[in-house]
Amino acid sequence: MRKFNHFDEFYLISVLVLEVKEKLEKEHYDLPVGENGRDDEDMILWYLKDRRFSVEEAIAKLTKAIRWRQEFGVADLSEDTVKSIAKTGKAYVHDFLDVNDRPVLLVVASKHLPDFDVFYYYYPKRLGEVLFVEAPFVFQPIWQLTKPLLKSYASMVKFCSAETVRKEYFTEETLPISFRD
């Protein structure tokens, strides 16, 4: 049995990315190109990894995501858009990073509406590095219904107590006001 080295792995991944690009160009030529488009190699790689390197599954999910981005007008989102949503009090970006240097989005579940999705699509390349803190902790019953629909994305969500948030994610100086005693 042949052992693969890093060059072999890089080569195989590059071949898969190219295969996805070519199929998207041939089968979905109407999709936009450029950043977050059908030829965005970083995004293609992300979807390949997400779909465990299944080219067909990555294409299906990527096509759907690009079309959604187009329909929703993600390219037109701006910092002002995010700020206007933040003014509603449904969610806000914390002024400080957490102890792992990740941006923090605080979501007030009692005020939550689908507008929250704007943060995900405004910062898609950093999603894996964002700490999502949900308070108050009434969202878990809804989460049990939603979790199966999210598949691998569900692993990005962690529920923890306010005490855990205080001790593990922030310093005393950076702790969000809503988590102070």
Rank of each mutant, 00 (worst) to 15 (best):
Y11Q: 11
A60N: 14
E9D: 10
A65W: 06
L24Y: 08
E79G: 05
A75S: 05
R52N: 15
E22V: 08
V55Q: 10
K3W: 11
L77R: 00
V15T: 12
T81E: 01
D42N: 11
F72V: 15
E22D: 15
D8H: 10
A58G: 03
E35W: 07
R51K: 11
E41G: 06
E9N: 09
V82N: 10
F10M: 08
V33M: 08
D42M: 09
E57M: 09
N5I: 01
V55P: 09
K26Y: 06
S84V: 10
L16V: 03
A65C: 11
S14N: 10
I44T: 04
L45Y: 14
T81M: 04
S54E: 04
E57V: 00
E22M: 11
K23H: 03
K3M: 13
E9R: 11
N5P: 07
M43P: 01
W46V: 00
E27I: 05
L48M: 02
I66F: 06
L45M: 10
L31W: 01
K83W: 03
F53M: 09
K23G: 02
V20A: 06
K23Q: 08
Y29H: 07
R69G: 02
E19A: 14
E19K: 10
L16D: 15
K83T: 05
K83Y: 12
F4A: 11
A75D: 03
R52M: 09
D39N: 14
V33T: 11
D50C: 08
E79P: 00
L62G: 06
E41D: 15
L16C: 11
S14K: 06
F72P: 00
Q70S: 06
L18S: 15
L12V: 06
L45E: 14
E56M: 06
K49E: 07
V20K: 01
V74G: 01
D42I: 11
L62Y: 03
D50G: 11
I66E: 02
R51W: 04
D42A: 08
Y11S: 14
E25Y: 07
M43V: 02
T81I: 03
L31H: 00
E9I: 15
Y11K: 12
H6Y: 13
V15S: 14
V33W: 00
E19P: 00
D80V: 08
D50T: 12
L62H: 02
F53W: 09
Y29I: 09
L24I: 06
R51M: 07
H28V: 01
E56N: 14
F72D: 09
K61V: 05
